[in-house]
Design a protein around this nucleic acid. Sequence first.
DNA 1: CAGTGACCCTGGGTGC
DNA 2: TGCACCCAGGGTCACT
Length: 270
Amino acid sequence: MPELPEVETTRRGIAPHLEGHRVTRVLLRRPDLRWPIPRAIRTALPGQRIDAVERRAKYLLLHTAAGSALLHLGMSGSLRVLPADTPAGKHDHYDLALDSGRVLRFTDPRRFGCLLWQPAGRLHPLLAGLGPEPLDAAFDGDHLWRLSRGRSAPVKTFLMDQGVVVGVGNIYASEALFAAGIHPKRAAGAVSRARYARLAAAVRRILAHAIARGGTTLRDFLAPDGAPGYFEQELAVYGRAGEPCRVCGTPIRAIALGQRSTFYCPRCQR
DNA sequence: CAGTGACCCTGGGTGC
DNA sequence: TGCACCCAGGGTCACT
C-alpha cells in the first residue's frame, strides 16, 4: 500500500506526537515481522528521547541519541498514535509507549513490514545503496539517463528499482510514465535523454502532488489521524483497465511486468 | 553485474 | 454459506 507519499503522510501525522518525547516501554506482540525484531529495540530504545522523525525512501527513522528505530510499513502496514489503554486488535504487532501517555501502534496484516535498529553513527545495510530521494536536487533526468545506459529491463522496472531512485512504487511508476508519454515496457536503455527529463519532472510533480493530497487510498490506507488520501480520484491510469484514457479516450490497458500490474495508454505512451 | 521469478503473509473480492 | 482461486501499494533472495 504505501509508496513514498503515503509514508511521508504517515511521518507528518506521527512526528508531532513523537518528537521531544521519550519511549517509556516497548511492547512486542508478534516479533516475527519481515525480519525478527532485534534485541536492541527492547534494550536500547526504552528511555530514549525521540529527537526527530525522518523519512528515507519508504523507511521511517525515529532518531534518538543511542540510535534510530527503522520502521517499514511493507504492503499493508500503518501507524497510529493512540491512548495507551486502547485495546489492541489481531494485527497490532507492536506498541512504542511514550511519556505522553500515548502509544505509537503498528498494524500490519501481511507482516511484510519491519522494525529494526540502527546504532548511532552507523548506516543500516538496508539504507546503503539506496538511490536519491526523488524530491531532492540530486534527482533529475540526467541521473536516470546515465544509470539506464545499456539496461535492457523495462523502464517501469528500472524506475521502481530503489537503487535508481527511491520511493516510486507500483502506482506512481505507472502514473509517471503516463505523464511522460513513455511506454512502460520500453527498454530503459532505449529512452532518450530528453524523455528522461520529462519523466523525472513527472515523478517529482506527481509525488509532490500526492503528498499534498494525503496520499492514495486504494482499499485501506489511512493517515495516522484516520483520514484517507485523496489522490486516488486523480489517478490517470492505475486501476483503470478498460476505461477511456483521460487524454485521448483510448481504453487503458493492463499488463504484468515483473509480477506487478501495470497500466498504460497504448496511444499516448510509446 | 543484470534480469527474472519465487517467495514472504493475510484478507478481500469473485465466481462456481 | 462454502470454497477455490486470484489479487494486492513492499522487498529480498536464489538462480540463470
